[in-house]
Computed example of a mutant assay.
Amino acid sequence: MKHFYRAIGILGFVTVLGGISPAIPAESAPILIVQNPAEDLFNSALAKSEAGDIQGAIADYTEAIRLNPNYAKAYNKRGIIQGRHLKDYPAAKADFDRAIEINPNYGDAYYNRARVREFLEDKPGAIADYHKAAELYQKDGNTNDYQDAIKHLQMLQE
């Protein structure tokens, strides 16, 4: 029986549910495009944010998060908009908290949460987050962000 299947494979046939069909030559096989709706929405949100469509960006980030509840980057970006544009610091902090919960090594989320904690007048929390962000940036070799986090950390510690 093994030889039967091998012979069929050589002749360019494959078995399909017990039947035999011609095999599709590799050069004419369709290209499989894997769609990732959450990633598409994330990219759409980035474009909307850059174009100044803040509400559209938030809607797209929120939908991306609905599709992928563990999408740390979407939480982080939505948190930036919540804080920077809407001045909703508690909502921004909640998004950064969730991004960090999903990815405890996400330096940008610590940095952004530190900024929000400054606005919320949580100096000890901001110091802790800048310290953690600096540590992660240094570990990743991200010199510019490391230096920025250290600068903010030093200003808070004066």
Rank of each mutant, 00 (worst) to 15 (best):
residue 1 M to P: 09
residue 2 K to P: 04
residue 2 K to M: 09
residue 6 R to A: 11
residue 8 I to L: 15
residue 9 G to T: 06
residue 9 G to A: 12
residue 12 G to T: 02
residue 15 T to Q: 11
residue 15 T to A: 08
residue 15 T to P: 03
residue 16 V to N: 08
residue 19 G to E: 13
residue 20 I to A: 07
residue 20 I to C: 04
residue 21 S to C: 09
residue 22 P to R: 14
residue 22 P to M: 10
residue 23 A to I: 03
residue 26 A to L: 14
residue 26 A to S: 14
residue 26 A to G: 06
residue 31 I to D: 09
residue 33 I to C: 05
residue 35 Q to F: 01
residue 35 Q to M: 04
residue 38 A to H: 01
residue 40 D to T: 08
residue 41 L to W: 00
residue 41 L to P: 01
residue 44 S to F: 07
residue 50 E to L: 13
residue 51 A to H: 05
residue 52 G to S: 08
residue 54 I to C: 08
residue 54 I to K: 10
residue 55 Q to Y: 07
residue 58 I to A: 07
residue 62 T to K: 03
residue 63 E to P: 04
residue 72 A to Q: 00
residue 74 A to D: 05
residue 74 A to E: 02
residue 80 I to F: 15
residue 80 I to C: 08
residue 82 Q to L: 11
residue 82 Q to A: 12
residue 83 G to C: 01
residue 84 R to G: 06
residue 87 K to Q: 15
residue 88 D to H: 11
residue 88 D to W: 07
residue 89 Y to V: 04
residue 90 P to G: 07
residue 92 A to P: 03
residue 100 I to V: 12
residue 100 I to Q: 10
residue 102 I to V: 14
residue 103 N to C: 10
residue 104 P to S: 15
residue 105 N to M: 11
residue 105 N to E: 15
residue 106 Y to S: 07
residue 107 G to C: 13
residue 108 D to V: 06
residue 109 A to P: 10
residue 109 A to W: 07
residue 109 A to S: 15
residue 109 A to T: 10
residue 111 Y to W: 07
residue 111 Y to T: 05
residue 112 N to F: 07
residue 113 R to C: 08
residue 113 R to I: 05
residue 114 A to F: 01
residue 114 A to I: 03
residue 116 V to R: 02
residue 118 E to H: 06
residue 121 E to Q: 15
residue 122 D to C: 09
residue 122 D to L: 08
residue 123 K to A: 06
residue 124 P to K: 04
residue 124 P to E: 10
residue 125 G to F: 05
residue 128 A to K: 03
residue 128 A to Q: 11
residue 133 A to C: 10
residue 135 E to A: 11
residue 137 Y to R: 12
residue 138 Q to S: 14
residue 138 Q to D: 14
residue 139 K to R: 15
residue 139 K to E: 14
residue 139 K to I: 05
residue 140 D to P: 01
residue 140 D to R: 15
residue 140 D to Y: 11
residue 141 G to I: 00
residue 143 T to S: 11
residue 145 D to C: 02
residue 146 Y to G: 02
residue 147 Q to L: 13
residue 147 Q to M: 10
residue 148 D to A: 12
residue 148 D to K: 06
residue 149 A to V: 00
residue 150 I to K: 12
residue 151 K to I: 00
residue 152 H to M: 12
residue 154 Q to T: 12
residue 155 M to V: 09
residue 155 M to K: 13
residue 156 L to D: 00
residue 156 L to N: 00
residue 156 L to F: 03
residue 157 Q to I: 08
residue 158 E to V: 09
